[in-house]
């Protein structure tokens, strides 16, 4: 850090500020309250999440248990690559999946160039944005979220959050225990671009496809409602 530049800049900034005490500033900030969040497509968090995943051009499977999830992942991988190979992060939850039930052959670790499919286990799903959230770390290499052609994401139905404020409450609670992840990646769709004549094309630099497998107790009615809400657009 160049101390002279810093001093001069800070001095100029201070010259334009009121120089209030921290307590006064904090009080003024708290008085501003919170921003309103976006209206959800449904009052049920799970339905809202699924609807927004579909609106984000994601594809969606709902699996009642881990065995069903593995079979659905196997089917997705085979459908696209006539293969049962994929790369999964070193997440213990992924390691504990009954892969034999689907005949899937995961390689655990970081995605290497040329490998097509990565599977990640999302920490949370956010209904407001339809995003799956990943905290980078030992179990979750960030490159697996951005480098594959197809990104398959497992997310637990009981880890769905209504909005971004709730997401940050969870992240802040985790940080309060000393865990400050290097990266927090909110993934809400396959990568896209509108840079040529404003026409949207999927598969810019990140994954061309984003497939979400929602794991847990989700009723057929919830699933149907989400698909109907999406189709009704």
């Amino acid at each position: 850090m160049n101390d002279d530049s810093r001093s001069r800049i800070m001095s100029k900034v201070r010259g334009s500020c009121a120089g209030n005490e921290a307590a006064v500033i904090d009080q003024a900030r708290e008085a501003l309250g919170s921003a309103p969040s976006a209206a959800l497509p449904h009052t049920d968090t799970c339905i809202a999440f699924m609807t927004n995943v579909l609106r984000n051009q994601g594809t969606l499977d709902v699996a009642p248990d881990r065995s069903a999830a593995v079979k659905m992942i196997a089917q997705y991988v085979y459908q696209h690559y006539r293969s049962h190979r994929l790369v999964a992060g070193n997440d213990p939850r992924l390691a504990a999946m009954p892969w034999r039930d689907g005949g899937v052959l995961p390689r655990f670790g970081e995605l290497e160039a040329g490998e097509q499919i990565a599977l990640s286990y999302a920490q949370w799903g956010v209904a407001e944005t339809g995003a799956t959230v990943f905290l980078s770390g030992k179990h979750n290499p960030s490159r697996n979220n951005f480098l594959p052609e197809h990104h398959v994401v497992l997310v637990d139905a009981d880890s769905l959050l209504p909005d971004l404020e709730t997401l940050w409450q969870r992240v802040n609670a985790s940080m309060a225990q000393g865990d400050r992840p290097r990266g927090i990646n909110c993934v809400a769709g396959p990568s896209s671009t509108g840079d040529i004549e404003g026409q949207i094309v999927y598969g810019a630099h990140g994954p061309r496809a984003w497939h979400v497998v929602l794991l847990g107790e989700v009723s057929a009615e919830q699933s149907d409602t989400a698909r109907a809400l999406h189709a009704g657009e």
Binding site: G137, P141, F146, N185, C186, V187, G194, G206
Partner: peptide, 24 residues
Amino acid sequence: ATGQPQTCYTSFYSGPRRAQDADG
């Protein structure tokens, strides 16, 4: 900016790779 409800990626980065990180 684009009329989207959210972009495909919203990321928050804290700093360099830590000892326990797989990448970065």
